[in-house]
Design a protein around this nucleic acid. Sequence first.
DNA 1: ACCTGAACACCGTTCAAGT
DNA 2: ACCTGAACACCGTTCAAGT
Lengths: 235, 235
Amino acid sequence: MAGASQGRRRAVHSLEAVIGEAIALLDEAGEGALTFRALASRLGGGVASIYWYVSSKDELLDRATDQVVVDHLERTEDLPRAADPLAGLRELAVALFDDIRLHPWMGKYMMRDAEAQPHVMIAYERLGEQVMRLDMSPRDTFHAVSAVLGFVIGTAIDLGQEPPAGADLAAGDRDSGLEAYAETWRALDPEKFPYIHLIIEEFVGHDDAVQFRAGLDLILEGLRRTSAGEPGADD
Amino acid sequence: MAGASQGRRRAVHSLEAVIGEAIALLDEAGEGALTFRALASRLGGGVASIYWYVSSKDELLDRATDQVVVDHLERTEDLPRAADPLAGLRELAVALFDDIRLHPWMGKYMMRDAEAQPHVMIAYERLGEQVMRLDMSPRDTFHAVSAVLGFVIGTAIDLGQEPPAGADLAAGDRDSGLEAYAETWRALDPEKFPYIHLIIEEFVGHDDAVQFRAGLDLILEGLRRTSAGEPGADD
DNA sequence: ACCTGAACACCGTTCAAGT
DNA sequence: ACCTGAACACCGTTCAAGT
C-alpha cells in the first residue's frame, strides 16, 4: 500500500502555470493575496520552486502584467475598424481600458518597466499609429499619445483602488459604498460645497465605464480641434 | 551621576510628529522605507508607541496624504487668479499636479478613502467650482471634473512609479534611464514600430511637467468646445 | 494618559540538499 | 534540470507591563 502512485512527491510546474496561477490569484482575491506561499500551494509544490521560473516578486508581477497584455492584443487584433483616426484611437483606448478593468491590479505595473513588458510596447504602438494619421509634429504626436495613455491607465488605477482593510463590503457592496459616501457629502454645508452638492446624485450609481468614455471624448475632441487648427505646429 | 537628565527613558511624541516624520521618510527614501520600526527610531521611541496615535499603517498613510493636501490648499489659497473658468481650472490642476509630484508616493492614496482624507474633498470642490461656471448639466460637470482629476492623479502616479529594485540609478539617473530605454527602442524594427521610432527623440529628455500640461490642455480644449456647443445638454 | 520590549504570525528570499 | 524544507531577516500588529 506504500505507493498506489509513487509520483506526487515532486510537483511539476512550468512558467505558464506559475504566471497563470498568479494572475488567477490576483484576479480572484486581489493584490494582497499574491504570496509565494499561497501561489506555491495552488501549484501543489514548495515555495522555493517558484524561484526556478522567476527571480523575484517584481519579475512575477511584470510577467503577469505582460501576459494580460498579450491576451488583450490577441483579443483586439482586428481593431480598429473605423476609417477615422480619432474613432480608431477611441476604439483602442476603450478596449484597453475595459481589459485593464478586468484585472484591476495590473494598471500600476503597466508603466513601470517597458523592457520587462515587451508587449505593452505594442499596445502603445497601436495607439500611436492612429494618432500619426493626424499628421502632427512628432512632439504633438508624442504628447497626444501620452495623454490618452495616461488617462486610460490613470483612470483604471484610480477606479481599481482597493478600499482600505476596514471598509464594509457586506451586502450591496458597490452601490452601498457609493451611497455611504453620498451620505457623508450630503452632510456638508451646501454654502461651502456647492459643487459636491450639485453632483451628489450623479455620483450615486454612476457608471465607471461611462465616466471614462466621457473623459476620453474630451481629450479626443481637444485633439481634433488642435490637430485641425495647427497642421504641423511646433513647440 | 545616575541622572544628568533622568528623562530620555520615555520618548514623547505627538500626532503631528508621527505624521511629519512619516512624510519625511516617504519623501526622502520612498514608500518601501516607511516601516514602523524605521519611523519609531526616527522618533526616538519604541515601535508600539506609534499605535497610540494611529491604528494601522493604512491610517498612517491616509493621514500623511491628507496632511500634504492641507499644505497644498494653504499654499494655493489665493488661486485661481484668472477670470476665465478654464484658465482657473488649469491653474488649479497644474498646482495640484506639481504638489503631488513633490510627494510621488501620495497619488495612489488620494482616491482611496474620501472620509479618511477630508481635505482632498476641498481640492475637488475647488476644481468643481471652476467647471460649474461653464453652466453645463450636473452630469457633464461631474464628468468634466472627474476627467481632469483622473488625468492629474493618474499621470502623477504613472510618473511617480518607483522603478523595480533592479534598476541602475547610478550616475546620470533619470537622463541615463531615458536613454537606456531609447537604446532598446532604436533596436526595434522601424517597419513594425513606426510610431515608436517617430517619437524616440522626443521621448529622450522630455519634461514630465510639459507633457502633463500638453495633455491637460487637450482636455481643456475639448471642454471648451463641448461646453460652448451644447449649453445644458443632457445624457 | 502615554510609552515600552517582547512576542506572534506573517512576509520575500536563500541555501544546502534531494532526485 | 528541477524541486524541496528549513532557515534568515524582515514585516505589521498585539499585549501585558511599566510610568
